[in-house]
């Protein structure tokens, strides 16, 4: 898949109401591969912090002798960080407002992550 195609899919994710931005992240090093986000979203920090969370959940799965997770969602009072495995070490990470429809968003981001493969 080309970088342009990635970009289009990320734009699709960001166009959902309530989504502040979507970032394709390499969880091995916590760096941004591609992004589509509002200016206020610090995508480099999102990538670094999301990668750290995903790495930790991978270790939980290993400790429980289970296969790696497909998605991780961290919710706070003022927003939600969602991460979906895309392709190997690449994960789709999105940040959403509290008012976003998380159920619909979860399905849509799952589809986008699958399309990124």
């Amino acid at each position: 898949m080309t970088l342009t195609a990635w970009q289009q899919l990320l734009d699709t994710a960001t166009s959902v109401p309530g989504v502040r931005g979507a970032v394709l992240v390499s969880i091995d090093d916590g760096l941004v591969i591609a992004e589509s986000a509002m200016d206020i979203l610090p995508t480099a920090e999102v990538a670094a912090l999301a990668a750290a969370i995903v790495q930790r959940t991978l270790r939980v799965s290993a400790a429980a002798s289970q296969r790696p997770p497909r998605s991780v969602r961290v919710s706070g009072d003022a927003g939600t960080l969602m991460a979906f495995v895309a392709d190997g070490p690449l994960w789709l990470v999105a940040v959403a407002d509290p008012a976003a429809e998380l159920g619909r968003l979860r399905l849509l981001l799952g589809d986008v992550a699958a399309a990124l493969r």
């Binding site: 091995d28 090093d29 990538a47 670094a48 990668a51």
Partner: peptide, 9 residues
């Protein structure tokens, strides 16, 4: 236990 992204940040 860390990453390039975290260290850079």
């Amino acid at each position: 236990e860390s990453s390039v992204g975290l260290v850079r940040m």
